[in-house]
Structure formats: structure tokens, C-alpha cells
Design a protein around this nucleic acid. Structure first.
Length: 455
RNA sequence: UCCUCUGUAGCUCAGCGGUAGAGCGGGUGGCUGUUAACCACUAGGUCGUUGGUUCGAUCCCAACCGGAGGAGCCA
């Protein structure tokens, strides 16, 4: 008899009859004559209630020790439940203990703190919350590919190891080879020069966009920043589309459409898991997601945003002044108090943005954009790229960057240059937004943060 | 890197300058178509580490280590 997933079983209109299920016991309630086993196999949030009569052959060896955490295989008849709370339950005809869990199994059926669960990251996927979060994560990864593939974007694998040490996005991890305990360096360097873990696939992505027109990357990214916040990790996943023959307007539209698409997909395909998040993580989650799906996002230029903030009368800790970067508190004011919805801020002063962003005709701003969402802040950062050779070279000089290191990047402007644009979407930040989970460490399976690389 | 908070039983926490507490979880027994089951009994702690103050420190002080939140940086 073949195994059926609990998700399949529970969604049946008619009883599938006699079947086999396999999973882990969440809890067991015993009485003299029989036991109730709550069985979960990760296919969905809900458990299957198994009724195991004490008269079952092998009851003492298989059912009695099947306490919380144990792995079991159960064969039985799916019948309508006599009790409240579930439609189907299984009347067991055979219970096999696959793997026992002794009494020191750390997960109790009661709520645990997220901090404690982080310390047992190898077991936390067996909880309701993390099961839900990682099913949603999987679905969102799939939806991202669908979104781009449906629009004719080509998936490009940009390198993890890179030699560009000045991509302008924070501190990098060095890649070295070892000789025993010693780091091999200098001319002995494996690649013949210093190399790093990528902080962005953008520059490489641009080369493919200038050939395949519309591309996206989706892979791990590394930042060696010593950041201690709920929104930063040293290793995270990023989605970076790059579009040829596209300006900032098209870039912003794509980013907004993408966020809406993903939220809509989650609402359609992760209803049970989102409902759990709504009940136990963030009571306003479903309402907010529906809002994001249904309403259009706000857009405001940096210049207007500065004026709006100055006129707001709000007492900010940091000054609001043209030419200064917007602080977290300013971004939060825009999305959480003023607009109360996702907001795209665009056209930033060129001084506070990297060399590759396209200079606007006002000569003061660049065609950059940040998509901000309530509760998290920046979820997307992007720009139209500088496609004019002379302007790009001037930018490199202005920012004291070594021109020769960007030969290949500059070549794109030498040979058949086109206007193009793109953005980066932080996958974990998207997941925080979609699930309502407040800490990035709880939406990535094994988080890497300063001082912490367990598991 | 800076600022703030925090570390007591397996978990969540209370507590106090003078022999360590609860709830939950675990174990045992009972009971019931149960579902955060229920009732009774029971085991379980070098109070993060090191040093200092004190007759006496889990408590006060310092340093260190771990955890969390925020800032910066960004996604």
C-alpha cells in the first residue's frame, strides 16, 4: 500500500479508504482503551488524528512509545471523525514505530520562544510556525521563477566568487585557499588575485541583459557587514532582474508588479499557512496582504519626499535635508504613517548613490528607486543604469574607482549600448513581509549572522 | 562599530544580601472520543563565566561570554 501525504488526505471530498501515512507525532493523548496520535508529515499545517485502539497488535511496542517527536508509519481506514475539530481521522489497523524520540526531545507542544527555536534550528522545521514559513518560502521561490518565466525572462546564474572588490555594496568575505593552517596568498592565490563572495550579481547580470534582453538572477549573496538587526544576515538570497531597453519607469513598474504578483500567489496558494501566521504572528497580516494586492502603490520623488517629511511636523531624530540619505525613521514615516502602503521613492541625489546609476537631465539626481514596505523598509533597490560611455567613465573617476577593473563592464557601453535598468529584491525581506515574521533569522533555514554560523 | 536591554529547572518566567519558587514540559498512577485534554503524586537547579565588595553574593560592583532590540550599512 503506497503512502499518501496528509495534505492530500485531508483535502479529499470522499474517504480514500485504507491508506498508509508516515510522519512525526506532534502529541499523543492516551486513554485506557485507545490513544489519539496527532501526526504531521510537513505536507501541510494540519495534523492527522490517528485513533489507535489498545487492542492493536504490538500496541505496547509501537503506540505507547510514540510520544512527541517520534516517527511512525500508520496504516488504517480514513473515516469521518466522531469528534469536533477535524473532518477526517484515521482508524489505525497497524502502527509501526520508525524512529523513537526519547523524553529529552526539546520541542514541547506548547509555544516556544523564537530565540529558543533558533538554538535548535535543526528541529524547528517541525513546529507549526517554521513549517508554515518554509512552505511559504518554497512557494515564493517557485512564484518568482514563474513570474519571470511567464514574461520571457531568462534565468542567469551569475558567479558566487568574484574578483570585483568594489561593487559598492558593503564589506565582502575573502575567498582563500588553505595550506594546512596557513592561508595561501600573493602570487600563490588560487585565482591569481584576491577574490570574494559576491555581494551582487548585477554587473554580470547587465552583460546578459545586453544580449538576452530580459534576465533575472536568483541566488545567495554575502555581506560581511557587522550588522546586528532583525533585517540583516551575512548570507541571504537575492533576486536581480535586468531589463534591456528599459528606463526607470519600466523598472519601478516591474518591481511593483512583482511584489503584487508574489503577494497574490501567496494568498492563493498558502492560505492555510498564512492564516496561521495571521493568528499567531501578526493579526493584521491578511488584511495588509489583501490591501497590497488590491491597491496601487505610491510613488514619490526623493525631492518631494524630503519636502513632505520637512512639512510633516514630525520630530525626527535625524535631520531631513536635501542631499542626505533617508533614515529608517523617515522611510517608516512615509510607508507607515503618511501613505500607509508600499511606496517607491525615486530620483535620488547622485552623491549618495553608486557610479552605475544613470544621471538624470537635471545633473543633480540619478534614476534610482527604492521600494519601501511598511514594517520592514527597503525591500527593493534598483536603478536605470548609466548607458552613456562618457558619463560612466566620468562617474568612475569622480568616485575614485579603478577604471581598468571595470573594462568588461565599460565595454557594454562601447559596443551596442542600450538603456537598461534593474533591481534587487531581498528574498528574506519579502518573506518577512509576506509572513509577518519580524526577524530575518526566522525566515531562512540556517541563519548566518555576526558571531553565529551554527548548523 | 556604537547605544539599550537581558542571562535563575528541559521551556517561559517570578524572586531575594542569610538553606531556591511557579506554570508548562518529563516520569508514575488514574480517568475520559480526546484535541494547548483532565486529576493526583514525583524527579529535576554550581542562579552564564571569572574576579571583587561583604561575616555571608543567585542578588551589589567590574570584566568577559552568550542572547535580543535599535542605529549605521544595506537587501
Amino acid at each position: 500500500m503506497s503512502r499518501i501525504r496528509i495534505a492530500d488526505l485531508l483535502s479529499r471530498e470522499l474517504s480514500p479508504g485504507s491508506v498508509v501515512v508516515k510522519g512525526w507525532v506532534r502529541t499523543k493523548r492516551d486513554s485506557k482503551a485507545f490513544s489519539f496520535l496527532e501526526l504531521n508529515d510537513g505536507s501541510c499545517l494540519a495534523n492527522l488524528q490517528v485513533v489507535a485502539d489498545a487492542t492493536l497488535p504490538g500496541y505496547e511496542e509501537s503506540v505507547e512509545p510514540a510520544r512527541t517527536g517520534a516517527a511512525v508509519e500508520v496504516e488504517g481506514e480514513v473515516v469521518e471523525s466522531q469528534g469536533q475539530g477535524q473532518r477526517w481521522e484515521m482508524q489505525a489497523t497497524r502502527v509501526t514505530l520508525v524512529g523513537a524520540a526519547p523524553e529529552d526531545y526539546p520541542l514541547q507542544k506548547k509555544g516556544h520562544s523564537l530565540e529558543f527555536l533558533r538554538s535548535i534550528a535543526h528541529l524547528r522545521p517541525r513546529t507549526n510556525l517554521f513549517g508554515a514559513v518554509f512552505r511559504i518560502r518554497s512557494r515564493m521561490a517557485f512564484a518568482i521563477h514563474r513570474f519571470f518565466q511567464e514574461r520571457g525572462f531568462v534565468y542567469v546564474h551569475t558567479p558566487i566568487i568574484t574578483a570585483s572588490d568594489c561593487e559598492g555594496a558593503g564589506e565582502m568575505f575573502r575567498v582563500v585557499t588553505m595550506e594546512g593552517e596557513k592561508v595561501r596568498g600573493g602570487a600563490e592565490e588560487f585565482f591569481g588575485k584576491p577574490t570574494y563572495l559576491t555581494v551582487s550579481g548585477q554587473l554580470e547580470g547587465e552583460t546578459f541583459a545586453c544580449a538576452l534582453s530580459n534576465i533575472y538572477t536568483f541566488g545567495p549573496t554575502f555581506r560581511a557587514e557587522n550588522s546586528h538587526t532583525s533585517r540583516h544576515a551575512a548570507e541571504f538570497w537575492m533576486i536581480e532582474p535586468e531589463i534591456a531597453f528599459c528606463d526607470l519607469e519600466g523598472d519601478m513598474t516591474l518591481a511593483e508588479e512583482m511584489v503584487k504578483y508574489l503577494v497574490n500567489d501567496a494568498l492563493d496558494h498558502c492560505a492555510e499557512d498564512l492564516d496561521f501566521c495571521n493568528r499567531f504572528v501578526d493579526k493584521g497580516l491578511l488584511e495588509r496582504l489583501a490591501f497590497v494586492r488590491d491597491r496601487s502603490f505610491e510613488r514619490i520623488s526623493y525631492t518631494d519626499a524630503v519636502e513632505l517629511l520637512r512639512a510633516s511636523g514630525e520630530a525626527f531624530e535625524f535631520p531631513v535635508e536635501y542631499g542626505l540619505a533617508l533614515q529608517s525613521e523617515h522611510e517608516r514615516y512615509l510607508t507607515e504613517k503618511h501613505f500607509r502602503c508600499p511606496t517607491t521613492v525615486y530620483n535620488y541625489p547622485k552623491e549618495i548613490k553608486p557610479f552605475y546609476m544613470r544621471r538624470n537631465d537635471d545633473e543633480k539626481t540619478v534614476a534610482a528607486m527604492d521600494l519601501l514596505v511598511p514594517g520592514i523598509g527597503e525591500i527593493v533597490g534598483g536603478s536605470q543604469r548609466e548607458e552613456r560611455l562618457e558619463v560612466l567613465l566620468a562617474n568612475l573617476r569622480e568616485q575614485d574607482l579603478e577604471e581598468s577593473a571595470y573594462d568588461w563592464y565599460v565595454d557594454l557601453r562601447r559596443f551596442g549600448t542600450v538603456p537598461h535598468a534593474g533591481f534587487g529584491l531581498g528574498f528574506e525581506r519579502l518573506l518577512m513581509f509576506v509572513t509577518g515574521v519580524g526577524n530575518i533569522r526566522d525566515v531562512i533555514p540556517f541563519p548566518r549572522t555576526p558571531g553565529s554560523a551554527e548548523f
